[in-house]
Design a protein around this nucleic acid. Sequence first.
DNA 1: CTGGTCAACTGGCCTGACCAATTAGCTCAA
DNA 2: TTGAGCTAATTGGTCAGGCCAGTTGACCAG
Lengths: 252, 252
Amino acid sequence: MFSAVESRRLYRQVADQIRMMIIRGELAVGQRLPAERELAEQLSVSRPTLREALIVLEVEGYINIRMGSGIYVTRKHAAEATGSEREPVEGPFELLQARAIIECAISEEAAKSARPEDIAVLDEALRAMSGVVEDARAVLVADRAFHTGIASIVGNATLIRVTGEMFDMRMTPYFEKLASHFEGPVSWRTALEEHRAIRDAIAAGDTAGAKDAMHTHLTNSQKRFSESFGEEFSGEEGRGRTAGPNKGKAAT
Amino acid sequence: MFSAVESRRLYRQVADQIRMMIIRGELAVGQRLPAERELAEQLSVSRPTLREALIVLEVEGYINIRMGSGIYVTRKHAAEATGSEREPVEGPFELLQARAIIECAISEEAAKSARPEDIAVLDEALRAMSGVVEDARAVLVADRAFHTGIASIVGNATLIRVTGEMFDMRMTPYFEKLASHFEGPVSWRTALEEHRAIRDAIAAGDTAGAKDAMHTHLTNSQKRFSESFGEEFSGEEGRGRTAGPNKGKAAT
DNA sequence: CTGGTCAACTGGCCTGACCAATTAGCTCAA
DNA sequence: TTGAGCTAATTGGTCAGGCCAGTTGACCAG
């Protein structure tokens, strides 16, 4: 929601970065993080700022700070309560298909009620994204801000959260490995153009157009994935069952 | 056991103190707190410590820190202050609206690819539900099975999970307390009829009809809610947008 | 009135230091 | 050998003072 522009605050950026590392699994549960002084130096921030970021993560429940001992990772996912299912997550193709279905509907809804200030939020996310296509980490933040920004137009906290959670599922080692094969400045610029098309349709109040543009965007993402999937993992057994490149859809 | 002497960290004590003042109403919603420097002096702590406490409260959602402007109380959040933890707690209406948008799209998609065995799954859920409308607990299980059953027609694990998670959000004390005022055999039979309409549309491959039927179902759920407790929520501030700094004063 | 400038706040961040809790390693007596 | 107790290094907790950047509103030129 309104944390789009506000994320300029350094301690929040630091918190985002560390949180992402935990979700990705780069920091195992139970593992002890480097000392505050060392961490601050590695991240090029002062210790007070690093401490503020750590407190954010502690309140959110990601880490446990023990005085005199160290900082420990406690869990890797925010929503874990219902003791159900598997950790291994679903495959990237299923995820992108699910996002296509859900976010298309959200875009459609957003186009109905977008106001100028809502469009300004999207524009800010686009502007931010255009400036960091070279930075693999920062561009993800901007990408996320755009997608959750659309959900925020509807003004529904649940939609914002679900959209964000689905986005964050790409932060898995499996997904990351695939993404590293095709994500780059070029593909991000393409995605940026697709974002602009979505933004324009929403700004124009064009519900069908917004839905189509979002569908195009996520379908293209799938394509980019499947190409790299075919090259690198051709001999491997894929996981997703449906969700081929051809989703057998009619109208659009 | 011996949790008496915890040597609580100072910034947490400060956060507790301010949080209590907000909950008690000593600090009105929307009110601006004293400046950090002044507040630190009043509480006899250093500014960094005060800042850490404020960041805790900001993450918890009690206050809103605006750079260059000041610190503002955003809400009281009375009851569950102690067990708080995660759970931004979106309201029941937001949840039902989100479900309407998302599950309508899923129903539409399901109607495209429903096979006889998929319909059989829905029929089984309907049959189970019809037999337990008297049992408040069992009927919820059947209700859940129906909704996730629709998602399973699309054959996408992410959709199934998201649908289930959104459904499970009603399993909170807050939500259940409200639900107990209107949920009963009568309302469940009505919901069952709405389920049947959804099932029929999906079985017939009627995408628009499936979407409409699902929309009707969840909109009616919303109505049943609002008829019982409509007024309670109307005073809440919108969360998604317009963190209006312009309260109180109208045009000049 | 209108629009722009500017100075007084206010939060954001930093340096550098010291205190307090924890823990690993050591000594030394049993 | 063993283990109880001490020591010192390590780590988080707190403090002080300062500078920078964004916000706001009063003020002045137009």
